[in-house]
Design a protein around this nucleic acid. Structure first.
Length: 524
RNA sequence: GCCCCCAUCGUCUAGCGGUCCAGGACAUCAGAUUCUCAUUCUGGCAACAUGGGUUCGAUUCCCAUUGGGGGUGCCA
C-alpha cells in the first residue's frame, strides 16, 4: 500500500470524474434473486472472428450448469483488445450459440455485456483503488519495460514489473503531475502487496485446493492506450457486479488464479467458484506430440466447420457433453436419460486432463443420433442444412421432397435395425446421390452379365411385391447357373453404379419403373 | 530458467485402501445373420508410466523421477 491519491489528481489521471462510488455500484447491481444453489455462469469470448470448439465446450458447461440449477447463463463479449477485433465476430458467436441451442439470458439490469461499454464501471473501481493507494499510475514506456525485461532476463530474475523494478510505484504527487503535464498518459497498475515467499491457497472446483506463491507483480489494471481494462481487472469487476457464481474457463487461466483471488480479497468481495476445464487436443502430425486444437492448423478447431459439414448439432453436444460428464454415455445407452440435458453434470466430475479429439467417436454419436430420427425429422434436418449451407447440387437433391423422403425412408421401418450409414447431412446427400439421374455414374469397371440384365428386363414388373420380385431373381439365377447374389449384384451395380447399397428391392421401388428400365437399358 | 496443472486399454473414461488377475464406450479383430453394404447378435485383443515409501493390504494415500500440458504481455 502507498499513499492514496487525491480525488482531483485521480480525475486528471483518468481524464474525468468517476461516475460511481463503490456503494452506488453495489446498489446498481444487487444480489440476484435466485433459488438456492442456482449457478450464474457466463461465456466470455473475445471477438476474434472464430468460434473455437474448446469455446463451445466451455459454453456448453456454462449453459448446462446454469440450466440444471435454474440459474442464469450470460454471454459477455470481452472486446478490450481493440487491435485484435474482427468485424462480424460477435455475430458469429451469437449464431453459433443459437445453432447449438445454448441460449443465453442477458438481463439488462446487469449489463452492458460488452466490456468496451463498461468503462465507467472499471474507472469507478480503479478510482477507489487509486484513492486507497492500492493502485498507481505508471508512466513506463514500452521501451522502458523492454529494457527492464532484458536486464531481468540476463540477471536470471523473473521478468515483470514488481518490487524494485516497479519504477513508478512510489511516485510523488508532484512527479505524477509533471508526467501528466508532459502529455504522458499512464497505465494504472496494481500496487501489489503479495510476497512470493508466502503461499496463497486457492480453490478450483475440479482440482480442489491449489497453492501458489503469492503474486507480487504490479499488473496493469487499466491500459494507457485506450483506457480499457486488462482481462484480470475486467474479470474482477464484471464477475462481481454481474454476480457470477461460477467461472468456467480454460485451464490456461489456472496460473492467474492467485492473482484473481488476490484481487477479490483486496476488494473485500467474495470470489466466484472457479472451474478450469482442460483443453481439447489432438496429436500433431509433425511432432507426434499432443497439443491443443489449433485455429491455424486444424479445421475441426472451428465450430463453423461442423456447421458447414452438416454434423448434427445434437451429436456434437452429446460428444462434448460426454467429455464434460463421462457417465452420460452409459446412462443414455441404458435408457435412463434421453439426452444430455436430462443427465446431471457434476462440476467435480469435469475432467482435468486434456482429451484428444476423437472424430470416430463423434461419428458414432452422429450415426446414433441420426438413426434415432423419424423419417420426417431426418428430411427436415437435411432440407434445413441445404437451405443454409448447400450448393446447387444439394438444392437439386432436395427439390423433390417426396422423392427425397422415399429415399431416406429406406430400411428405416424397423427401429431396431435402422441403417447407420448417415453421419452428416452433407455426407447423407452424397450417400444417396445415385438416386438422381444427374448424379448417377455408370460403373465402368464392373463386368456386367448382359444376359442377366436382359432377363431381368423381360420379367420386371414395377408392381411386384418383394417375394415375387425375389422369385424372379432366383429364376434368372437358375437359368444362367449363377448364384442369386450374382444376379442381385448385376442389378445393384447397374442401378447404382456401386457394389454396396441398401436393400435392392427398396431401391428399385423408390427409383420407379422408368428409371430402372432406363438405367439397365443404357448398359445393354 | 522459474511457477502451476495432469498421468488407467490405441482413444474417452469407471474406479475414490481389500468388491479389480481392473468395468464400460469408441476404434480394432474374429464368427453368426443378410442378395452386397449397413444393421443386429456372439466372442477376442488391449491399460493402472517408473522407483521409493505408508499399510496386514495399494490402481486408489505420500514423495521422487519421467512424460505431457499450461503460464511467465498495456492478448484474452
Amino acid at each position: 500500500m502507498r499513499d492514496g491519491l487525491s480525488k482531483d489528481l485521480i480525475e486528471r489521471i483518468l481524464g474525468g470524474k468517476p461516475k460511481y462510488t463503490l456503494d452506488e455500484l453495489e446498489n446498481l447491481f444487487p444480489a440476484r434473486n435466485l433459488p438456492d444453489g442456482a449457478f450464474v455462469t457466463r461465456f466470455a469470448p473475445s471477438p476474434t472472428g472464430f468460434m473455437h470448439l474448446g469455446g463451445l465446450y466451455g459454453a456448453l458447461i456454462d449453459y448446462k450448469l446454469a440450466k440444471q440449477s435454474n440459474g442464469v447463463f450470460m454471454l459477455r463479449i470481452e472486446d478490450t483488445d481493440t487491435k485484435r477485433e474482427v468485424k462480424d465476430a460477435v455475430q458469429i458467436i451469437i449464431d453459433s450459440l443459437k445453432k447449438f441451442g445454448l441460449n443465453y439470458n442477458n438481463d439488462e439490469k446487469y449489463g452492458p455485456y460488452f466490456q468496451s461499454q463498461r468503462k465507467d464501471i472499471y474507472h469507478s473501481v480503479v478510482a477507489y483503488l487509486l484513492e486507497q493507494g492500492l493502485a498507481y499510475p505508471c508512466f513506463l514506456s514500452a521501451q522502458d519495460m523492454e529494457k527492464i525485461r532484458a536486464e531481468q532476463a540476463s540477471a536470471g530474475f523473473p521478468t515483470g514489473i514488481y518490487g524494485e523494478f516497479a519504477r513508478d510505484r512510489n511516485l510523488t504527487n508532484d512527479d505524477i503531475v509533471a508526467h501528466l503535464d508532459n502529455g504522458e498518459v499512464p497505465s494504472i497498475r496494481l500496487y501489489s502487496n503479495g510476497n512470493p515467499e508466502q503461499r496463497i491457497f486457492c480453490k478450483d472446483a475440479v482440482r480442489g485446493s491449489i497453492s501458489f506463491p503469492e503474486n507480487n507483480e504490479d499488473i496493469v489494471l487499466i491500459k494507457s492506450n485506450d483506457g480499457l481494462p486488462t482481462y484480470h481487472f475486467a474479470h474482477l469487476c464484471d464477475d462481481h457486479f454481474m454476480r457470477t457464481t461460477h467461472v468456467i474457463r480454460g485451464e490456461e487461466w489456472l496460473s492467474s488464479l492467485p492473482l484473481h483471488v488476490q484481487l477479490f480479497r483486496m476488494m473485500g468481495w467474495t470470489a466466484p467458484l472457479y472451474i478450469h476445464t482442460s483443453t481439447i487436443d489432438k496429436i500433431d502430425s509433425e511432432t507426434g506430440k499432443q497439443r491443443k486444437l489449433s485455429k491455424r492448423h486444424d479445421p475441426e478447431a472451428n465450430v463453423a466447420f461442423f456447421l458447414r459439414d452438416g454434423w448434427p448439432t445434437d451429436a456434437v453436444i452429446d460428444y462434448l457433453g460426454n467429455i464434460a460428464s463421462s457417465g452420460y454415455e452409459e446412462a443414455k445407452n441404458k435408457g435412463v436419460v434421453k439426452n444430455f440435458w436430462e443427465y446431471e453434470t457434476k462440476p467435480k466430475k469435469i475432467p482435468m486432463s486434456g482429451a484428444l479429439f476423437d472424430m470416430k467417436k463423434l461419428e458414432w454419436w452422429s450415426k446414433e443420433f441420426i438413426a434415432s430420427l423419424s423419417v420426417p425429422e431426418l428430411v427436415n434436418y437435411v432440407v434445413d442444412w441445404v437451405r443454409d449451407y448447400g450448393d446447387d447440387v444439394h438444392k437439386m437433391q432436395v427439390a423433390d421432397v417426396n422423392y427425397l423422403t422415399s429415399i431416406l425412408a429406406i430400411e428405416r421401418d424397423n427401429p431396431k435395425r435402422v441403417r447407420k450409414d448417415f453421419i452428416t447431412w452433407h455426407q447423407t446427400l452424397g450417400e444417396i446421390a445415385y438416386f438422381y439421374d444427374d448424379l448417377y455414374v455408370k460403373n465402368s469397371e464392373y463386368e456386367f452379365n448382359k444376359t442377366v440384365l436382359n432377363d431381368f428386363l423381360s420379367v420386371y414388373d414395377e408392381n411386384d411385391d418383394k417375394d415375387t420380385w425375389w422369385n424372379k431373381i432366383v429364376e434368372i439365377a437358375e437359368k444362367n447357373s449363377l448364384k442369386n447374389g450374382d444376379v442381385a449384384m448385376n442389378l445393384r451395380v447397374a442401378l447404382s453404379g456401386r457394389t454396396n447399397t441398401p436393400d435392392l428391392y427398396s431401391i428399385i421401388r423408390v427409383m420407379g419403373g422408368a428409371r430402372v428400365r432406363d438405367r439397365i437399358q443404357s448398359l445393354l
